[in-house]
């Protein structure tokens, strides 16, 4: 039992080390990659534009639910006027970065892991290496750089739509004065909250896209599966590991900043 536990722990530590080396190599290769700007723009489009609908829909409904729940809780204590503060602080400090990251993992992260897994299976990655092209620099680095831009922007959008959703349910459906709602938002959210929001978003972006790229890139090393099954297993692993890492990183960052 102890041996099994020790073996698993060592495997996790080795995996984290491998992931760190993979990410480092990708950033190092970015400097040598030619026409990087065009590939970053493409990655921004894939992670940003294509994920826009899901961010808008989830952001809106998160705001609507927060508005509803917040109103009923605050109303019990006669503080319905603080609804804007509750919705905005919840969204900016926690729910915005975490939920936006989870949505981006589900859409862009899984697509990235599957794409790289298929490219590995069909020898496209090996083909790049035989051309003298760094596969890390060509395939991974643009996605990582794009994630540092896209995750904070998508989070900002998620928060903005969520705030509007909160106002919709609070003001239009439940009768909280719109001016009171938005002035509570303005008073509640301060610069450190916004900084925390963007710090979390950028960190989640870097971690999740690294993990998804790592699993797809190494689909051939997937234990117990080959071919299409290896792609499927590595994609599943990428999404599960990324989602867990988002929540763990959220706790760590929050505990340092609170």
């Amino acid at each position: 039992m102890l041996k099994l536990l020790g073996g698993q722990t060592l495997r996790v530590i080795a995996g984290l080390g491998d992931l760190a080396l993979f990410t480092g190599e990708s950033f190092r290769s970015a400097g040598k990659s030619r026409r990087l700007g065009r590939r970053i723009a493409r990655a921004v489009y894939e992670q940003g534009t294509l994920c826009l609908p899901v961010i808008l829909i989830v952001g809106m409904f998160t705001g609507l639910v927060l508005g509803l729940q917040g109103y009923y809780v605050l109303n019990r204590f006669g503080s319905a006027g603080l609804l804007g503060a509750l919705v905005s602080l919840s969204l900016v400090r926690e729910m915005g970065p975490v939920l936006a990251a989870l949505m981006l993992v589900g859409q862009a992260g899984s697509a990235l892991a599957a794409e790289l897994g298929i490219q590995r299976n069909s020898e496209q990655i090996v083909a790049l290496e035989t051309m003298g092209v760094s596969s890390h620099g060509y395939l991974v680095a643009p996605r990582l750089i794009a994630a540092l831009l896209v995750f904070p922007l998508q989070t900002a959008l998620f928060v903005a739509v969520g705030l509007w959703g909160g106002s919709l349910s609070g003001s239009l459906l439940l009768g909280v004065d719109s001016g009171v709602y938005w002035s509570a938002v303005e008073r509640a959210v301060e610069a450190p909250d916004v900084r925390e929001c963007f710090l979390k978003a950028a960190t989640f972006g870097l971690l999740t896209i690294s993990i998804c790229a790592y699993h797809g890139f190494n689909a051939h090393r997937c234990r117990g599966a080959t071919g299409a099954r290896a792609v499927s297993a590595s994609t599943t692993r990428a999404v599960v590991h990324s989602s867990i890492v988002v929540l763990v990183a959220d706790y760590v960052i929050t505990s340092f900043l609170v």
Binding site: S33, R34, R35, E115, Q119, S122, E123, Q124, V126, A127, T130, M131, G132, V133, Y138
Partner: peptide, 25 residues
């Protein structure tokens, strides 16, 4: 290197596939 499976980039057009090594090297 010409691969047994061809190893062509399926998300790139034929022209982009041929241009890739020139663009990158």
């Amino acid at each position: 290197f010409l691969f047994q499976s061809n190893a062509l980039f399926d998300s790139l057009t034929a022209l982009e596939n041929v241009a890739l090594p020139l663009e990158q090297t």
